[in-house]
């Protein structure tokens, strides 16, 4: 009963072979087995989006996925999106536009926003708000998060890196 399962995943470009209990959630695999604690657990009930990572390029809630389901996949976490020397445009947007206060929601927000910009490089404000419906922030009131995403969209389009209404 409940025998362990061998999985292979590529996380932030590094291949890992692990033996996991089937009930191990992906978020715990990332945080506890691989030590990648940038991905947070907020609600643990699929509501808040703090645990958002990219699975084969698409945003998922890693608290609502068993690690075994990710077998054979490629995962990007906040640690793999940019680096301290070279921030991803969405990370830079959150910095420049003051898109965070306590920062707890931020890794998930950034991963969800990066997924949006992959699908829709020039979203309207309404589209940004709709795309972030699964990410809760208890601090900022969201306005600066929207501006951070607009900054990133402009930056990625090669425009001067400022939010639309600045």
């Amino acid at each position: 009963m409940a025998e362990k399962v061998q999985i292979k995943v590529v996380v932030n470009g590094v291949e890992h072979h692990s033996e996991v209990e089937p009930r191990l959630l992906l978020v715990h695999y990332l945080r506890e087995t691989l030590g990648l604690t940038g991905t947070h657990v907020g609600c643990d009930t699929s509501q808040c989006g703090a645990c958002t990572v990219h699975l084969d390029g698409q945003a998922v809630k890693s608290c609502t996925l068993f690690a075994v389901q990710a077998d054979g996949s490629s995962i990007t976490t906040i640690e793999g999106l940019g680096s301290v020397d070279s921030l991803h445009p969405v990370q830079e947007g959150f910095w420049e536009m003051h898109g965070l206060q306590c920062g707890f929601c931020t890794p998930g927000m950034i991963m969800a926003a990066a997924d949006l910009l992959n699908r829709n490089p020039q979203p309207s404000e309404e589209e940004i708000r709709h795309a972030l419906e699964g990410n809760l922030c208890r601090c900022t009131g969201y306005h600066n998060i929207v501006r951070a995403v607009q900054y990133a969209a402009n930056k990625m389009a090669g425009k001067v890196g400022v939010a639309a209404d600045d």
Partner: peptide, 9 residues
Amino acid sequence: IGDPMVRTK
């Protein structure tokens, strides 16, 4: 339905 992450899976 739900949000983009729910729609991925």
